[in-house]
Amino acid sequence: MKKVGITGQSGFIGTHFYNQLGLMPDIVRIPFCDSYFEEDASMDEFVHSCDVIIHLAAMNRNQDADLLYHTNIGLVQKLIASLQRTSSKPHVIFSSSIQEELDNVYGKSKREGRLLLEQWSQQSGSFFTSMLIPNVFGPFGKPFYNSVVATFCHLLATGGEPEIHVDSEIKLIYIDDLFREFYKAISGEIQTTGYRVPFNLKLKVSEILGMLRIFKEFYLEKGIIPVLDSSYKVNLFNTFRSYIDSKTFFPVKLTQHSDTRGAFVEVVRLGVGGQVSFSTTKPGITRGNHYHTRKIERFAVIRGKAVIQLRRIGESRILEFLLDGESPSFVDMPVWHTHNITNVGKDDLYTIFWINEWYDPDDPDTYFEKV
């Protein structure tokens, strides 16, 4: 078992990495708080407890160039000072950037921070890896800070209007794919001080915005799951969905057509395949209490009364939705949100489930955690 800690654990990449490490059977996570940088005793305890430290903590953007530069260098220096005080020799993995090669303050701070850690590694005889990463996108990124994808998703999901200032081509990697590269470094598969993390997507800004506009039109305005004929489109769609305010958007009412024969309800319009299931649930029984990291899933209640609960992994806030088959409706499950459904009525609950992948017992993407 390797004990792994992440500086910058509360950030966009850090949160994903911390959650992903929690799924690894060979990893013990050592929690980190940003305040440790100002508390030598806490920082020393953290450093001394780790076999591996992933140094993510950094300022990405700031109008004050000097503040950005000195903040990033200062964080590296504080980490090194703690390593030296405790005589610790963990494997340090440094999150650098392809911007090292550009003439900007952020790239300069990353390059010089890497050189400081390389010097510490040589002097201490410890293992050091630096990862030069491309632009990263994924759910829950901070708009106007982490990436243009985050900014566009936020604006489109909240009624804003994105603008393209420079229609450049961007090299991108999805957050889950980036984690797999870092996990290789943790496992010792990557042993270099300047590993260039491969991008797996290259798109112009206008192409990204075009796809996101389609997602908004189809999903938010028409209630249609769009055509998702590649893994990167699924990743981009899940990223877009993470910016929708679930509390106000769900449950979505379905149109019910009734006549003397009974009722007809269309549950889902699909531009993608998957698996449709049907269940009955006895009164008082709860199903679910699990989450997915990539799957798109819909719960549609067509008879009976149910409460659906959602909670984002790592957070305590629970969203609750009351659905009644008298007025059929659905809730879609965001990635990285554990969820369940409980029959709160007196009769059997009838639910239709749709998910965009067939169930694969060798790769179920289903992780159990109570809401």
Rank of each mutant, 00 (worst) to 15 (best):
R111A: 08
G107Q: 11
D177P: 01
Q309K: 13
I214R: 03
I313A: 01
Y18L: 03
T351L: 02
P139W: 12
K3V: 10
G288Y: 05
Y195Q: 13
G314H: 02
L270I: 07
L254G: 02
F152H: 12
T255V: 15
K253M: 14
F330K: 06
T338S: 12
V136A: 06
L75W: 01
I224A: 12
V105T: 08
P139F: 11
S329L: 06
P361C: 03
H165S: 14
K78N: 07
W358C: 10
S147A: 00
T293K: 07
A306Q: 05
R287P: 04
R29Y: 11
D362Q: 15
I6K: 04
V92G: 07
T260M: 09
F249N: 03
S130I: 01
A263G: 04
L178G: 05
V4K: 05
S242H: 05
F250P: 06
I80H: 06
A300F: 08
S168Q: 13
S10E: 13
I313Q: 00
E297Q: 07
D363L: 12
L322E: 15
G223D: 06
F179E: 05
I164P: 04
I214T: 10
N200H: 05
L172T: 03
L116N: 14
D347P: 02
G188C: 07
F12D: 05
L23E: 04
L21T: 07
S42C: 14
L349W: 07
S231E: 13
M211A: 00
I285P: 10
I170E: 02
G160F: 11
V272E: 00
K171V: 01
T15M: 12
D348K: 12
G107S: 00
K204N: 09
F94Y: 03
N356V: 04
I285W: 03
G210Q: 01
E181D: 14
L236W: 09
G125K: 14
F215W: 01
K346P: 11
L83N: 10
F17E: 06
S242L: 04
R85S: 12
S279C: 13
D332E: 12
I285E: 13
R111I: 14
S82T: 05
S242P: 12
G273F: 06
M131Q: 08
Y18E: 13
N19H: 15
I313K: 02
C50T: 00
V166H: 15
L156T: 02
G223K: 08
H70E: 10
G107L: 00
D229K: 12
P364N: 11
G262Y: 09
F218N: 15
F330N: 03
C33Q: 15
H48V: 15
I93F: 00
P334L: 00
K295I: 10
F218L: 14
A41N: 15
F237G: 03
I80L: 09
G273L: 04
T129D: 11
G262Q: 00
E369S: 08
P25A: 08
I352Q: 05
Y219T: 10
T338G: 01
F32P: 04
T338W: 02
T151F: 09
K142W: 06
A263R: 10
E181P: 13
S206M: 02
Q122E: 03
K295N: 09
T280L: 01
S231Q: 10
R269Q: 15
L156Y: 09
L79Q: 11
I27H: 10
E161L: 15
L178I: 02
Y243M: 10
Q119R: 15
I164N: 07
I341G: 05
I164T: 06
D332K: 02
F215E: 05
D66H: 07
D26F: 14
A65R: 11
R111F: 15
T239D: 09
